[in-house]
Simulated scan of single mutants.
Amino acid sequence: MLRIMLLLIIGILLSGCMFPQDQRSGGDVPYEDQRKTVEDAVHQYREATGVLPIETRDQDTPDFRKYPINFRELSPYLSQLPTNAFENGGVFQYVILNPEEQMDVRLLDIRTSRELQDVQRQIHQYRSDHQFAPVKDIVHEGILKLDHEALSFDEEITVQSPFYPDHRLPVYMETDGSMVIDYRIDLLKVIDENGMGGYAEGDDIRWLLTDHHPVVPDYSLPMTVEDGEIVFKKTD
């Protein structure tokens, strides 16, 4: 069923060494060796200090942004910053997932935020002019489809997937004005390629993306499988 749906929808080397010369300008590539070297350094830091080298964030910060790495703290365990890190002019923020267990390091693509900021500016301007939001339809409880024509966009509002460059992902809005990216196309593809990996109906399957890719699904909401279809997970 998921394979059929997919066909329908889809139309550092750091430790004691310098980065290879051919990677030094790759600020927009999620190099696996850089990610792994930072992850190893995080484990060493935790073992030595008992804490994580992270920036402080509010408790209600979304999971995929909640534990950004503080490279100032981590620097004694790295020979240099990753070439693709935001702090070094790259486009990725390094974050920690599962901080109490595996302490996996993944990358958050900040270009997505920049794209969505443009959309939000258009929404704010529209609301200022019309006193209501440019909503076209209801996608799910609390999730709204935007009227792209009212916002002066030629096409439905999408952003490029950080997982599959040939995918464009729909952008929605929550009732509180927050932006939401719909990763269902990406999830269908990762399931088609790798299976469910032990996840079951009712589980938040966004983690499948981070299980098989070095980046995270920013601006996402919990998603699950119901009756063979990927859906936004019902709120409690």
Rank of each mutant, 00 (worst) to 15 (best):
144 L>N: 07
213 H>I: 11
181 I>G: 10
160 Q>L: 14
166 D>M: 04
21 Q>G: 15
159 V>E: 06
231 V>L: 08
115 E>S: 15
170 P>E: 10
97 L>F: 00
133 A>C: 02
88 N>D: 13
67 Y>E: 04
210 T>N: 12
172 Y>I: 08
14 L>E: 03
63 D>E: 15
159 V>K: 11
170 P>N: 10
138 I>F: 05
150 A>Y: 01
165 P>M: 13
222 P>W: 00
45 Y>N: 05
88 N>W: 12
87 E>T: 11
74 L>W: 05
231 V>A: 07
120 Q>H: 06
68 P>H: 10
136 K>H: 07
2 L>F: 15
157 I>V: 08
213 H>M: 15
42 V>P: 07
86 F>W: 13
1 M>N: 09
175 T>W: 02
142 G>Q: 02
134 P>K: 01
142 G>K: 08
98 N>M: 03
26 G>K: 15
6 L>Y: 10
51 V>G: 09
41 A>V: 05
54 I>P: 06
12 I>S: 14
216 V>Q: 03
44 Q>F: 06
130 H>N: 05
117 Q>A: 09
66 K>G: 05
140 H>M: 03
111 R>H: 01
13 L>Y: 00
175 T>C: 01
91 V>D: 14
10 I>R: 13
59 Q>A: 09
162 P>M: 02
88 N>E: 10
74 L>N: 03
220 S>L: 12
